[in-house]
Nucleic acid binder design. Sequence first.
DNA 1: CTGTTAGCGCATTCAG
DNA 2: CTGAATGCGCTAACAG
Lengths: 363, 363
Amino acid sequence: MSEVPGNPHVSKAKLRERMPVAHRKPTMSDVARLAGVGTMTVSRVLSGTVRVSAETTQRVLTAIEQLKYRPNELARAFRGQRSHSIGLIIPYLYDPFFANCAQAVTAVAKEHGYSVIITTSDEDPDTEYAEAEHMLERHVDGMVVIPSRFRQTRLSRALFGKTPVVAFDRPVPDPSLDVVLVQNTAGARRIVEHLIEHGHKRIAYMGLSRTLFTINTRFLGYRRAMQVAGLAEDATFDCNSEEVTLGILKEKLSGKDAPTAILTSNTLATRYVLSSIAHLGVKVPNDLAFTGFDDFDLAEFTSPPLTVVRQPAQEMGRVATSLLFDRIARGEIPQTGNRIVLPIEIVLRRSCGCKHKTPVVIS
Amino acid sequence: MSEVPGNPHVSKAKLRERMPVAHRKPTMSDVARLAGVGTMTVSRVLSGTVRVSAETTQRVLTAIEQLKYRPNELARAFRGQRSHSIGLIIPYLYDPFFANCAQAVTAVAKEHGYSVIITTSDEDPDTEYAEAEHMLERHVDGMVVIPSRFRQTRLSRALFGKTPVVAFDRPVPDPSLDVVLVQNTAGARRIVEHLIEHGHKRIAYMGLSRTLFTINTRFLGYRRAMQVAGLAEDATFDCNSEEVTLGILKEKLSGKDAPTAILTSNTLATRYVLSSIAHLGVKVPNDLAFTGFDDFDLAEFTSPPLTVVRQPAQEMGRVATSLLFDRIARGEIPQTGNRIVLPIEIVLRRSCGCKHKTPVVIS
DNA sequence: CTGTTAGCGCATTCAG
DNA sequence: CTGAATGCGCTAACAG
């Protein structure tokens, strides 16, 4: 041990003058020294949790001003129990639906004075797991996540320990996590019923991978409506690219039981199908009625305007994040989490065969 | 001071048994104890910077496994000089263009093993400033930001100190910050020239606030093209909502010098104008040719498909972030920053009057 | 109302 | 190749 002779309990480091203030970020003790008080007083002035005399407060404030002191959040987070940050994991950011969710999450976090650490899972369960671990290592106070594939996601209470987590848009197998969803099944069912009211008998469901919760759940709604009406179902789950989708649609339409109406599973499928429709020169809604899941900004300006199921993306994000802050505040992890289901709306435009000049929204 | 009698320099805390491991997250010394080594050895095994004997390494690894030990990134960041996180400030997340930028930033950060702290400025210079300060307090290693209004942004080297910052999409007044932009002026100019080639003489520029850099810069390109062709300019900067835009367009079209073609300043303006056009029953491109800045997923499926200037959103984000990591690695702050300008593309579809069945991209 | 002490978990000295 | 001591900046707990 490097002790100074004669002062066996005071190390050299303790005696060494600290670097001149100019070259380091000022710390609390710099402020304390300048104000002629103890560091705790500065801390108290900053946090405002304990009364400090007006005069002292003023001195501290002046010193802070003078040194341009900024508290070190890292030290604060490290020292205390709260890091004042939450983690957000979503599949992609370039999907407007997810981006809208993220917008809501950051907005709520800001209201709580929290930072958001964001990352994408790219729909890959391993990436998702690794990113979640990474956030845990950063000691986030909680996490909001849109889980990847239901059967493969490894997100669970075992991983998170005492860190609260809210899943949204898609559920997780672990029942102890809170989850916020929308009425996927009911939404799909109702829009199919609408198509049936228009007189359609052969309605096709065109989706991406069935391993995605939302896509499968919506399919269930579609199937239900078809069954109730005594109609034969016709679903595909391979619309993974424009090329593939074009092939599928072409084959469907050339068959003798060609569908007269379509429901797509989500925005991406909508894009692929719309592209294929344009390519094939099919007229909507006369040759083929079109409906899709997920509304988007310009759905009103496509040709024809699109009838869709609208999900409350931002509200879902807001509800999920509020729930998370609730958990953080309460500090208790439930045995079984909440399950909140938000209502959807049907936006009737003209691709379904309706003649509305302006969209009609039913909820 | 609470000392144990007889041991004047050993406090009670020092003697007190630590909580049983089960109730705390395991720390490095838990691992060290179990492996029968010092904490430094564990640290070295983890960081891999210094050679440790194979046998010892194995013992440590086993202990880590057994305790499910995870390093505390917070402590690591606090202790070391790097927090391994960068900050990202964008105006909004619900704008697909910005979301795409953000996607690229998070992707590059992930490649570097970095976390991204994200926040929105809502186009407000004060929010922007506050959020930047907040990130600085969190000791991010660097920041990527899409600055708010050019004349009002308070982002500057003075605020950031030695923390590297890259601005993108829009510049900042402070020349010491790096900035990555696209060819806004050239893009606007070329698409207007294209309109002129179609025979248009009265071309209107419809934009949001001129205080936004991109919108003003694109206007300059528009103006240039008009001047060179000897045409009179006709620009408005008040398309802030659907209602206002509708009023403006209605008035323009009823005047005797009604425009025969339009260029919008960005996606939002495009939406407002498209909505107004639909509302007024104007036929595109026969009554009015349409062109816009910013491509988007479904621009191909609007009626008619839209001719637009396409910006490389993801590439811009990627370049900006790579530049930032460069600065972080080098650890030096330049006197005057880089200024990188990325090329744009013109996507010719049919709203401009072209007859292309599929889009033609010129760059 | 204010100050002192101690320690959060880690990595950088420095000694073996 | 390994370990002990030390302190990063802050605040909870206590003492005055």
